[in-house]
């Protein structure tokens, strides 16, 4: 018990440190990083949306980009077509709700029939292709293959205050704030009883079933949450990037998310979050140096992680942390 407590608090400290660092970046740096980092935070959330499926529950989805795209289209379409006061908030909510509903329907449809885990992967793959094809073909709504423009939103609080997100720093803190809120909610969820049941499902679904839990409901719920989170990240991304197009839903982007999570550490929420940010940053950096080879490098790293370091970066760090800990422990006992 003692061990678990110190571990949790250690991780929480680390998380706090990460978010403090993110919050202080605009104080130190300026320029491009302030523009691009919010996008990578959203990619981090997208990675988290997969890790609560994969690491926590033991389900893989090849369709997270599909939900991300739904979110981005939702805000784009709402902001474009309505002149309501809070169309931005409406757009974000719509992105979350539509993603969650689609995830819920598809999830329940499949989980309630006890579809094999690997089949579920293929179904999410198909789902993501359907979303991409519909985005391409429904030109009147989505702009088709040529894409849809999304204005930077401003958030208004009643008639009193309007907060425009046109400039980089307001957008940065807006995104960071939402990221922290979403992260905290997910964190709460995973440490709650609900999270424990999900972990139980991952370890041994039959036992949880035998204990009287309807596991397909739980799996559907977590897929809903995951879809909602991805849709949420996508909706902020849409207004941040200013442009949405069907390629956002493509399978290659979904699998990029898998690579982020595998490298960051599938069992760790903060690891996945950082995986999204770090791998995307690295990709951007290497892009300007060796565009031909970086994808090859990423592919090889991915293989290495899957074969040798299942815990990813987070697992590695944790191990080092524990080793240091135990060394201290040993040296404390034997002065």
């Amino acid at each position: 018990m003692q061990n678990v407590l110190t571990k949790i608090s250690g991780e929480a400290k680390f998380e706090l440190l990460i978010f403090l660092a993110l919050a202080s970046i605009p104080l130190v740096f300026s320029g491009y990083i302030l523009f691009i980092l919010p996008q990578y935070m959203l990619f981090g959330l997208l990675a988290v949306s997969l890790s609560i499926l994969w690491g926590l529950t033991g389900i893989i989805s090849f369709g997270q980009a599909g939900f991300f795209a739904i979110g981005a289209y939702a805000i784009g379409i709402v902001v474009k077509s309505t002149f309501l006061m809070n169309s931005a908030i409406l757009g974000i909510l719509l992105g979350i709700i539509v993603s969650a509903v689609i995830a819920g329907v598809v999830g329940y449809f499949l989980f309630s029939a006890k579809v094999k885990a690997t089949y579920f992967v293929l179904a999410t793959l198909a789902l993501s292709i359907i979303i991409e094809q519909l985005a391409k073909s429904q030109k009147e709504i989505t702009g088709g293959w040529n894409g849809l423009f999304v204005d930077r939103i401003s958030i208004s609080f009643g008639n009193l205050l309007e907060y425009s997100l046109f400039n980089d720093i307001p957008m940065y803190y807006f995104t960071l704030l939402l990221t922290i809120i979403a992260y905290a909610l997910i964190k709460f969820l995973t440490t709650s009883n609900f999270g424990k049941i999900l972990r139980g499902i991952r370890e041994n679904e039959d036992r949880i079933l035998a204990l009287g839990y309807n596991t397909s409901i739980y799996k559907t719920l977590i897929f809903c949450v995951s879809g909602a989170l991805a849709g949420f990240a996508g909706s902020i991304y849409g207004t941040h990037a200013g442009f949405v197009d069907p390629s956002l839903a493509r399978v290659l982007f979904s699998t990029e998310v898998i690579v982020w999570v595998a490298i960051g550490g599938r069992n760790s929420i903060i690891g996945s979050f950082l995986g999204g940010i770090l791998v995307a940053s690295l990709a951007n950096y290497l892009n300007s140096i060796t565009p031909e080879y970086w994808q090859l490098i990423i592919g090889i790293v991915f293989i290495a992680v899957v074969i040798l370091f299942k815990g990813g970066l987070a697992g590695g760090l944790e191990e080092i942390y524990h080793r240091l800990k135990s060394k201290n422990y040993v040296s404390a006992r034997n002065p």
């Binding site: 499949l110 198909a126 292709i129 359907i130």
Partner: peptide, 12 residues
């Protein structure tokens, strides 16, 4: 693709 998802479920 839609049909394939349905098949996955009703006749795996």
């Amino acid at each position: 693709f839609f049909f394939a998802i349905v098949i996955l479920r009703i006749r795996p």
